[in-house]
Design a protein around this nucleic acid. Structure first.
Lengths: 142, 142
DNA sequence: AATAAATAGTTGACAATGTCAACTAAAATT
DNA sequence: AATTTTAGTTGACATTGTCAACTATTTATT
């Protein structure tokens, strides 16, 4: 593999993480961290999702997820129920309140992204989206 | 702006952060965090860089950077000297040892990226790099 | 020049985040 | 039935990150 290829990925990462503010801990100054938002997203996407699925999805430590889930439950964002099929396992659902909070976060995220994109001219913006969708398609294939 | 446009950025972010393992704290199981590596990168790139520059570059809290710098200095990765021009300010340089450590991290990062890319076929890989470079060019213009 | 305001970075005091290994309970395997 | 594996939780920390207050210049204002 060409060195140039790898170098491009690295250069991209450096730019992109700053662009998206990923280095900053709290997500859009909300009361949620990036990971918490991802967990909410997962629960919103698939009702009754299991912790083990989220662990695989986000590639994080299970003990860490366990605490995140506990914290979200305490804040009434999600609820846990015992799995009927597997006594060891657990089903996670987002609450109505959780959905509303999640929607708010999405709005905030949209505003932020809109702000970033608005600094681009139309051509660049279109090209950006096209390139992102290409990358995403390639990565999603895996 | 089209909703679709924003949605693509969001979808991209979700995929990409997982792909790059950005959600995981420690950088490639090294003794350094992602931000520390970025600071090393900054010092390696520009000898005598000032903390305020890094704060602007990475968009992080100055007190936080101050501690990161102190920690890196203690570990002999960088050294601080007083700025000759401005008595309030400080110059940061990477040490020889720091350069070596940084090089090691780069190697590890290359290996990781190579691993990720090796799961793609040649066409996809080329397309991925092309798209990344397009995004990067657009974002760097700003 | 004297005073006030702004800037660069540090520190105190926490709060939040993240990790690792050990543990419990329930399945699955032998 | 005994053993192993799996799902998730908990203890015990270590690290990371935030906010406001503070010191020491430097710059701007009168």
């Amino acid at each position: 593999m060409k060195k140039q290829t790898i170098e491009e990925v690295r250069a991209f990462n450096r730019i992109y993480t700053v662009f998206m503010g990923i280095l900053n801990k709290s997500y859009l100054k909300s009361n949620f961290s990036l990971i918490e938002v991802r967990v909410m997203h997962a629960a919103n996407n698939k009702d009754g999702i299991m912790p083990s699925e989220i662990v695989a999805l986000l590639n994080i430590d299970k003990s860490y997820l366990s605490r995140i889930v506990a914290s979200l439950e305490k804040r009434n964002i999600i609820i846990k129920t015992k799995s009927p099929k597997d006594g060891r396992s657990v089903r996670i659902s987002i609450t109505e309140f959780g959905q509303k909070e999640f929607e708010k976060l999405n709005q905030a995220s949209n505003v932020q992204i809109e702000g970033l994109l608005s600094t681009l001219n139309e051509r660049d913006c279109e090209q950006l989206i096209k390139s992102m969708s290409e990358i995403r398609m390639i990565l999603e294939k895996k």
